[in-house]
């Protein structure tokens, strides 16, 4: 019982350990339950080709990235040059999910807007934004006007990026803007791993 005086110290260290670990966690990064699950299906109009649609079905057999973006999203402006640069010689196609382009912009009053006008407005705004911000890194962008696809993918902040494998299963989710570091250290190795597995 000589070491009794060490008990408070031990409790303190235990508590400090827990708190220290908690300090390192990012409460903004909510782990997605969709990892390892099939990417939710959708079929919506494309942003650029007006008469075409896009669905995850179309990408079966390929590893691809789904990047959620919008012209009103401030962080997307930091992410965009990284994506444009990556797309130049990316080993995988990047599919854009243009999320609530019109409704998501708090500055616009769009109550009672009709769907055709909303789609046209979204296309015009999104295309212009791409031109102004260094180009279009996406093979195709899907237009998610009402954010329903976003909900199906558990999107709670833009930008977010999903890595999807050949079987259409979500393998990884990146929350927040992609940086050159996260691309180099996480995404590119994960892409290579998935492509090797095929």
């Amino acid at each position: 019982m000589k070491a009794k005086f060490l008990v408070p110290l031990f409790i303190f260290l235990l508590l400090a350990g827990f708190l220290g670990y908690g300090l390192k966690l990012n409460p903004r990064e909510v782990p997605s339950p969709l990892i390892g699950k099939p990417a939710p299906a959708f079929r919506v109009p494309q942003l650029q080709a007006e008469d075409k649609s896009i669905s995850p079905e179309d990408l079966k057999g390929r590893v691809w990235l789904l990047n959620v973006w919008a012209s009103w999203c401030i962080s997307c402006r930091y992410e965009h040059p990284v994506l444009v640069d990556f797309a130049r010689n990316s080993p995988v196609p990047i599919i854009g999910l243009n999320y609530k382009e019109v409704r998501g912009d708090g500055a616009l009053d769009v109550k009672g807007i009709d769907p055709a006008t909303e789609l046209a407005t979204a296309r015009q705004r999104a295309r212009q934004w791409l031109v102004e911000h260094g180009g279009d890194p996406y093979m195709v962008s899907a237009v998610d006007l009402d954010g329903r696809i976003g909900i199906d993918y558990g999107v709670y902040g833009v930008p977010e990026t999903f890595l999807i494998d050949q079987q259409g299963v979500i393998r990884y989710k990146h929350i927040g803007p992609i940086t050159p570091e996260s691309l180099r250290d996480v995404l590119i190795p994960k892409i290579a791993e998935l492509q090797r597995a095929s």
């Binding site: 909510v30 782990p31 997605s32 339950p33 969709l34 909900i151 199906d152 993918y153 558990g154 709670y156």
Partner: peptide, 8 residues
């Protein structure tokens, strides 16, 4: 909702 956003 849990299927999309988790227990969070």
């Amino acid at each position: 909702l849990v299927a999309r956003y988790g227990d969070f």
